[in-house]
C-alpha cells in the first residue's frame, strides 16, 4: 500500500510524498529526495553508514520505516552543516583527514554530531568513541577518526 507522508528534512518546510508503507527512510532519502549522502552499507543495522538524525537522535535509516518519521525532524549529512555541532565535526574531519575511501564518512559525521549533542560537550573522548562503535570503516581508518574526536574534545576543531 502507498500513502502520503509529510517529511521534514534538513529544516525545509514539510514535504508531502506518496511512499509505500514498507519503504525504508534510507530509500526515500536517496531515491525520492535525491539525498545521496546517506549511504547504504549493510542494510541490517550493523555498519552505521545510513545514520541520520531523527529529532536530533542518531537513527539507522535502513531500519526505519519512512512513515514512522511523520511529524519528526530528519537531518541528513547534507543538512549537518546547519548545526553548530555538525560544523565542528566537519572541520575536525577535514583537519585530521579522517577518511580514506569516504563511504562511511557521512555516517560517522552524522553519528558523531548526534552523539556530541546527546552526551554533552563535556563528555570524555572515551565515552564518545564508545558511542561511535556502531559505525564501521572497512578501510579500518579509525585512527584519524579518533584524532578528530580528540580534536573536538580539545575545543580545537
Amino acid at each position: 500500500m502507498t500513502s502520503e507522508v509529510a517529511l521534514t528534512v534538513n529544516g525545509a518546510a514539510p514535504r508531502r510524498l506518496a511512499v509505500p508503507d514498507s519503504e525504508r527512510l534510507l530509500d526515500t532519502l536517496r531515491w525520492r529526495l535525491g539525498l545521496k549522502g546517506t549511504k547504504e552499507g549493510c542494510r541490517t543495522g550493523d555498519c552505521g553508514a545510513c545514520t541520520v538524525l531523527v529529532d536530533g537522535e542518531t537513527t539507522l535509516s535502513c531500519l526505519t520505516l519512512t512513515h514512522e518519521v511523520q511529524d519528526r525532524a530528519v537531518t541528513t549529512v547534507e543538512g549537518i552543516a546547519e548545526d553548530p555541532e555538525g560544523r565542528r565535526v566537519l572541520a575536525a574531519f577535514a583537519a585530521e583527514d579522517a577518511l580514506q575511501c569516504g563511504y562511511c564518512t557521512p555516517g560517522f559525521v552524522v553519528s558523531l554530531t548526534g552523539i556530541r549533542k546527546e552526551l554533552g560537550a563535556s563528555a570524555p573522548d572515551s565515552a564518545v568513541i564508545e558511542a561511535l562503535q556502531g559505525n564501521l570503516c572497512r578501510c579500518t581508518g579509525y585512527l584519524a577518526i579518533v584524532r578528530a574526536v580528540a580534536r573536538i574534545g580539545n575545543g580545537n576543531p
Binding site: T51, T59, T64, G134
Partner: peptide, 9 residues
C-alpha cells in the same frame, strides 16, 4: 544491545 543508533529505536 547493538549500537546507540539502534537503541534509539
Amino acid at each position: 544491545v547493538g549500537s546507540l543508533a539502534l537503541r534509539h529505536r
